[in-house]
């Protein structure tokens, strides 16, 4: 459970010589009732881990797609308790680890210790707190680790080499490399230096390195999957959901899951097929 479940997934992927596929969706988008089936669908469709955003009113690191997603979730009545309840409901049927992407504001409002024990009780396996950098993360990280949760810090393209090492040393479960300097959201192309940056990071990191921010198409996912231990895709899945919302929430979930299956397949074939020209 928790950290152990996360570590086991990466061992399994390593044995299979493939990267992990880590889709992201927002808890409560389009409505709180949809979230358990969304998590189940992602797991059934090839997700090795699921990253679940706990919606926050003012997410600093998110671009327009995830901002709108969180606004929809909050407008639909999603609270922290309802997000955790959705994890608990999915947990009964899903073996894949589920990690929360959660703002420091929400963690500190509840108290890091209480948030951690509530997370563990709901069957959540770890935290990614994008606005708690090394200098601020101590108490939050300690609470997560004490509750047996994975702790996934972020390294950015702007992070100096020495600091990358210090951040990597705090990671439990995996390390999150942000592929672009900027907010979440699809990019037409990813920086050419991502592969080299990930290779250098894997040399100093005691845990696997996953890459996210900006990865949106199967070819991009395939490229990243050759270099990294895991590929995180968020905005592209949420955009697929959003675009289908006019046809109702069930269709939105279906479109999101269809997009996730395409990306999962791209990640799985990455190291079996030669790179595209």
């Amino acid at each position: 459970m928790g950290l152990d479940r996360v570590a086991a997934v990466f061992s399994k992927c390593r044995e299979g010589n493939r990267a992990a596929f880590v889709p992201f969706v927002t808890a409560g988008d389009p409505d709180p009732g949809a979230t358990p089936s969304l998590i189940e669908g992602l797991a059934a469709g090839g997700a090795d881990l699921v990253e679940l955003g706990i919606p926050f009113s003012d997410p600093l690191a998110d671009g327009p797609v995830l901002q709108r997603s969180q606004a929809r979730a909050l407008a639909a009545g999603t609270t922290v308790d309802r997000a955790l309840a959705a994890v608990a409901a999915a947990r009964a049927k899903v073996a894949a680890p589920v990690l929360a992407m959660v703002s420091a504001s929400l963690v500190l409002a509840r108290g890091a210790g209480k948030f951690a024990s509530d997370s563990a009780a709901a069957g959540l396996d770890g935290w990614i707190v994008p606005d708690a950098p090394l200098e601020e993360s101590g108490p939050i990280r300690d609470a997560a680790i004490a509750a047996g949760l994975a702790w996934v810090p972020l390294v950015a393209p702007t992070t100096p080499p020495e600091r990358r090492r210090s951040i990597a040393e705090t990671a439990r479960g995996f390390l999150y490399y942000v592929s672009v300097a900027g907010v979440t959201g699809a990019r037409e192309s990813l920086p050419a230096e991502v592969a080299a940056a990930v290779a250098a990071l894997r040399d100093v990191s005691p845990v696997p390195v996953c890459v996210g921010f900006g990865v949106s198409t199967p070819p991009q996912a395939e490229t990243i999957a050759r270099a990294a231990d895991g590929v995180i895709v968020g905005s592209a899945l949420v955009a697929a959901l959003e675009e289908a919302l006019a046809d109702g929430p069930a269709e939105a979930v279906r479109q999101c899951l269809a997009k996730a299956r395409l990306l999962a397949a791209a990640v799985r074939r990455a190291r079996r097929s030669p790179p595209q020209p």
Binding site: L60, P130, D131, P133, L134, V155, A156, V178, A181, G182
Partner: peptide
């Protein structure tokens, strides 16, 4: 106080 920002901004 503090600096609760995404890692991208810490060096800046």
């Amino acid at each position: 106080g503090g600096a609760y920002v995404p890692e991208t901004l810490v060096p800046a």
